[in-house]
Simulated assay, not measured.
Amino acid sequence: MDPKLCRAVTEAFVRLHEEGLIYRSNRLVNWSCTLKSAISDIEVDKVELPGRTLLSVPGYDHKVEFGVLVLFAYKVEGSGEELVVATTRVETMLGDTAVAVHPEDPRYKHLHGKLVTHPFCDRKLPILADNFVEREFGTGAVKITPAHDQNDYDVGKRHNLPFITIFNEEGNVIGDCTQFVGMKRFQARRAVIDALKEKGLYRETKDNPMVVPICSRSKDVVEPLIKPQCTVMLTVITLVACFFPHRYLSCDVMAKNALDSVRSGELKLIPEHFNKTWYHWMENSRYVT
């Protein structure tokens, strides 16, 4: 690239780093197992399903079932009780590190702080009380897989849970549930259900309207993965990402300043119809953008 531009990128990076605005961190990203790459939110198509639907997924000879809710039981340690959870992605139970219930749900108050046992590995999962749980959804008890779901990621951070990655970049199972290691993620979906049935823990599968995230380029089902990922804002910072990968940029203050500059007329976007996109990006920036 042009030497002057390279120097400008380096200067911008150093200044942002010295101000504590750019940093390296592991975050949950949209991952395409086909592309073997993280993709941005705008490259994810949200496909709405009315219920049970078979979808074609790259790399699979058969269609994969979506739009269902699978119910299965975790055994409560030290008692004859069980806690039935509901999930749309049963294969991710291989990475569960907790089960959550609503703190005011009378059905489960006596279980707060107790443990359930994982059926496929040597792992104890705490039963947490968290307000994010919807009491009316499923059984009112949800499995928590912090390394593979955004809501679960947030719960994991709040409760200091372990983050266990169970899929590699190709979408194959890894980890300590050894009987499933090496399977493709949607092969594991079927295998986990069969294994739950063998242990008497499977309860039922029922229709469930849902949204499936699809990569707009590969048409693969997006898999949330924790990665050191560079996400950036503004043209010069985009160039920083090219030279200094695996960095994060704190953008809350920068996003506000960028919005105020356009609204006040200090900064003009040409053509003006780009203003709508600008506002969308800046107003919807998260802790990083």
Rank of each mutant, 00 (worst) to 15 (best):
D176Q: 13
T205Y: 11
Y153N: 00
Y153I: 07
D152Y: 06
H159R: 02
P209V: 12
S216D: 00
V181L: 13
P228W: 03
H246R: 14
P224Y: 11
I164M: 09
V155Y: 12
H159K: 08
K206C: 15
P228H: 08
C215E: 03
N160D: 13
R263C: 02
L267N: 09
E204V: 06
M210D: 06
L249G: 00
G200A: 06
I193F: 05
H159A: 01
K184T: 04
D149N: 09
Q187N: 07
R263I: 12
I174L: 09
N168F: 01
H246F: 15
I164F: 00
A191D: 04
V155I: 09
M183C: 03
D260E: 11
C230G: 08
A188H: 02
K184S: 03
K157Q: 14
K227T: 11
K157E: 12
K206S: 14
I166A: 00
G156A: 02
N208F: 15
L201R: 08
K219W: 01
F180H: 04
R189Y: 04
G156E: 09
R247G: 00
F167C: 13
Y153S: 08
L201G: 04
I214P: 03
V192C: 03
L196P: 03
A188T: 06
E204K: 15
V240F: 00
M254P: 01
D176Y: 05
T178E: 05
R189P: 03
